[in-house]
Design a protein around this nucleic acid. Structure first.
Lengths: 219, 219
DNA sequence: GTCTATAATGTGATAGAC
DNA sequence: GTCTATCACATTATAGAC
């Protein structure tokens, strides 16, 4: 059975659902990068909704309105799609580690959180995708990078394993990170109106300070 | 190709890896419930390690030392396995909602968190499994229970959608829940020694109070 | 209770025409 | 850049012998 025969009439028109107004007909050479971006958009939606593993290429292709084979023109593999989406977050985490440097303890941790809160608004949806597919993404990118554990997320937790830290400090540091992440998820909760990003960020900054028991933000 | 031919010598002995000392030989009728429990143990390990979706029945059967068909004697389906594992957590969440009742606001929320912290120690591994497979488990059990969204986890978030709550309250309530969950994950961080459960619980109780800005625990 | 063998289906991925 | 058609493979699940 051909690719989309189950869901599309054999010779029918291409644009389904009216999800998009086409400037020029599909199949005669689309604008550069346009389809690629739509694939990423659709994939992000599905990965967030139902997870990376449960989302098939057939499903992505269907929603975009192309065949699976077209996906393989734009991306080398399914993993390539999720890797491309995750890249900004990955780089963000990576440079966050660089910021943290070798210092430990709540002080530099707070700086890191402030910076993370700032970045979060711009990438909240990608962060959410990572949060909901952390294990899957972790394994994908462990398979690529040969090494055992290069995911920055894990590095954060390794920081907390520092024996110089008390249990109380560990709980509050890990907890404050969780607060920030939950704040990002809260911002995109369906059914509730999205809060003002600046107000949310300010609220988060105060909240993590309460949890880490340090002074209020300087700004 | 027969089931385990790739990993087990055709006529070889049954017990592999010496993972378990057998009182009496396998295949002559095992002790009631023994294999079933081992299946659950192995499945829990794998679901936590690499996720529900990426774990196949073949893999579970291999580690247990039986064939896939044997799994189907003990469980109706793969979903049945994960549902059985998730059941205690599900019931816990459910009764937590009953405890919360109709009241909103940080007051009853704190009571709920105290209770959750208490329960967490006894079920930390199952909670971790849920946390890492929330989307998968959610969909599995939505498929069973016909209804659209009966998962208690979602109900917690619906509480936070109450328009009577300020953004600050929402952030702190969602955040405090995240702190408790992260505390459970912290307790089982590989590589670091497991903290004393009672001490961890006490630390969490104080931490969530700092975040919710209420007094210290009465106990 | 466990096995062998197989069914039924879906998946990621590729070849080659247009 | 997208299509049709197909491949090779893994998966969940079942049937029936022992």
């Amino acid at each position: 059975m051909p690719d989309g025969a189950a869901t599309r009439t054999k010779g029918g028109p291409l644009g389904r659902r009216g999800r998009r107004v086409l400037i020029r007909p599909r199949g005669a050479g689309a604008i550069s990068g346009e389809t690629r971006q739509r694939i990423l958009d659709v994939a992000l939606d599905l990965f967030v909704e139902q997870g990376y593993d449960k989302t098939s290429l057939r499903e992505i292709a269907e929603r975009v309105g192309v065949t699976k084979a077209a996906l393989y023109y734009h991306f080398q593999s399914k993993e390539d799609i999720v890797t491309t989406l995750h890249m900004p977050v990955h780089e963000l985490m990576h440079s966050a580690m660089a910021r943290l440097g070798d210092s430990t303890g709540p002080g530099s941790w707070l700086d890191f959180l402030d910076w993370l809160i700032e970045q979060l608004a711009a990438h909240s949806r990608l962060f959410l995708m990572y949060q909901r597919n952390a294990t899957a993404i972790g394994e994908v990118h462990r398979k690529d990078h040969g090494g055992p554990e290069v995911e920055p997320e894990q590095l954060f937790l390794q920081r907390l394993a520092d024996p110089a830290l008390s249990l109380d400090e560990r709980v509050r540091m890990a907890g404050s990170l969780a607060v920030v992440v939950s704040g990002a998820a809260l911002a995109m909760q369906p059914g509730t109106p999205a809060p003002d990003p600046a107000e949310l960020a300010a609220t988060l900054r105060v909240a993590v300070r309460d949890l880490l028991r340090v002074g209020q933000p300087s700004a």
